[in-house]
Simulated assay, not measured.
Amino acid sequence: MTKPRAVIIGVGDGLSAAVARDLGTDHDLTLAARSDDKMRLLANETGAQTVLLDATDEAAVARLFDDLPASPRVVVYNPSARVRGPIADLPVDDVRAAVEVTAIGALIAGKHAARRMQEADPIDGTRGTIIFTGASAGVKGFPQSAPFAMGKFAQRGLAESMARELHPKGIHVVWVNIDGAILNPGRSEPADAPGSMLRPEAIARTYRHLIDQDRSAWSNEMTVRPWVERF
């Protein structure tokens, strides 16, 4: 039996790698990223196909989805970009480029994921799941981090609008607020605060839960935070 196809855009060695390992057990994977280094190692581990692309290049993203052998059942959009600094000093071109990655890239991926998913025959009434990896910056803007807040607020609004449009068509859309620091490879928790960072594998299990949700009780937004994180 043919496995369902999962597409992960934006690949590193932390959360996206954990999601790929989880989904790779029962999905055929396509990984897409700007750089081949980490993606190639993960592809060798999971048997995934790989595509080099800039997530803000609509023609490249459209080709990615057009070249899939079947409509994807899962699409995860991870990329984001940060520019830090006092508001009075922010270079506008740098801010524009950051928002392009976080928000416009999400729009492009969502557009073409939805286009292909609408071609699919529903399984138990569902054509697929689109997940946007968000952040606490999408609900609260932090000092000297306006560009990241701009991108994540826009991404969150995009996901909510898509959910209202696409849920009745059998396409599940979710924005996940990662409200805390992720314990990616190379990072360590403070000695005085063990368990204070989110494990990538735990977040990946949450993504799996969202993918498997019954459509009678779909989430359109989910927040995950370590137990010590303040609201």
Rank of each mutant, 00 (worst) to 15 (best):
P4Q: 12
P4C: 07
V7L: 12
I9H: 03
V11G: 06
D13E: 15
G14A: 13
L15C: 09
A17D: 09
A18V: 07
A18N: 05
R21H: 03
R21T: 13
D22F: 02
D22S: 07
D22C: 09
D22A: 11
G24L: 05
D28A: 12
L29C: 02
L29I: 09
A32I: 07
A33M: 02
D37P: 00
R40F: 00
L42I: 13
N44K: 12
E45N: 07
E45Q: 14
E45V: 06
T46F: 11
T50C: 13
V51W: 11
L53C: 08
E58R: 13
E58A: 15
A59T: 13
A60S: 15
V61C: 06
A62Y: 01
R73D: 02
V75H: 04
V76A: 02
Y77V: 02
N78A: 08
N78H: 11
P79G: 03
V83R: 14
P86S: 14
I87Q: 07
P91G: 02
D94C: 00
V95N: 07
V95R: 08
V95W: 10
R96N: 07
A98N: 06
E100G: 01
T102A: 06
A103N: 08
G105W: 03
L107R: 05
G110N: 03
G110E: 00
K111H: 14
R115E: 14
R115Y: 06
R116Q: 14
A120D: 09
A120L: 10
I123Y: 05
R127H: 04
G128Y: 06
T129C: 09
I131S: 01
T133N: 13
T133I: 12
A135N: 10
S136P: 00
V139W: 00
F142W: 15
F142D: 08
G151N: 04
K152E: 10
G157T: 08
A159K: 10
E160T: 04
A163S: 14
A163C: 00
R164Y: 04
E165F: 03
L166T: 05
P168Y: 13
G170S: 10
V173R: 07
V176R: 02
D179F: 13
A181I: 09
A181V: 14
I182V: 15
I182N: 00
I182K: 03
N184Y: 01
G186A: 07
E189D: 11
P190T: 11
P190N: 10
A191W: 01
D192P: 04
P194V: 10
G195H: 11
G195R: 11
S196A: 14
M197N: 04
L198A: 05
R199D: 11
R199I: 08
I203C: 02
L210R: 01
L210C: 03
I211F: 05
I211M: 08
S216K: 10
S216F: 01
S216Y: 01
S219D: 12
M222P: 00
T223S: 08
V224W: 04
R225Q: 11
W227A: 14
R230W: 10
R230D: 09
